[in-house]
Amino acid sequence: MSAQESGRDGVTRRSFLRGGLGAAGGLAAVAAAVSPLRELDTGDLTLERLLQKHYKEMTPEDKERVLERIRNEVQQRFEVRPELRDLPPLPGVEFAYALNLGRCIGCRRCVHACVRENNQSRDPEIQYIRVLELPRGSVDVERSEHHYDHLRVPSPDHYYMPVQCHQCENPPCVKVCPVEATWKEPDGVIVIDYDWCIGCRYCAAACPYFARRFNYAEPSVPKEELNPDMNYLSNRPRRKGVMEKCHFCLQRTRAGRMPACLEVCPVGARNFGNLLDPESQVAQILKTKQIFVLKQDAATLPRFFYYFDQDM
């Protein structure tokens, strides 16, 4: 009885050692668990960036301050002063894209023009556009091939289907974002605020088109290849741990220009324009061609249409 009593009140050497061992183990485990923090690269993480407001809540002055900060950051990182702007959506404009599958020869010019234009990471490699190769007559996208490696394209008996972000009217990726870092703009383009993205990658999982790309490592863009024509919501440089994807080249299209992938297409398979203008390329295509969308049953209502020419 008395031994039990003393054990309850005082601390015996034994129990002290036991407790101490447990505590030390626990501490070590906690230290191990947080050890990745030692390698955490705070880089140019400034208080200013931490305290930045959500894009939609920024006043014009806030925006100008943020743009100036990014310009300085880019200048430090790439030794180039960028033409960074924040182009607003154009009134009365909804963008849409149409692609003629009968023309596409799978040369991947669009893929690389896009990488150039939008400052995508070269290493590790990030590409917004995937060109799928399918056997003629098949429409089974799941069994398509995007690593085809022929000496010459098109390879006989195949056709090619470039896939990029479809800018859905009913975007599943936007719905799953827990922090509203991605949203649909009035011109129909789904954008991402790279400063707001927390890198949870829910959106990538939600996208039925596999259109979103994640920066698993610090993206690297050669200084001499940086495109200095930048827009806040589109092609400004990203950092590790954020999502990115095709945004119809907002830095170009909101200034009235054609997207980069279109201008480089050697066969003219790509068409772009304002859906609300009945004279525009895409409106004409919707009117005169048999169009279809990818994975229609996903009910995402894409703004990216495919068609075959009737007389093909």
């Binding site: 991947r108 893929v111 490696d149 022929h150 010459r152 394209v153």
Partner: peptide, 8 residues
């Protein structure tokens, strides 16, 4: 025909 650029 064109030589395709490298794939992903």
């Amino acid at each position: 025909p064109l030589v395709p650029l490298p794939g992903p």
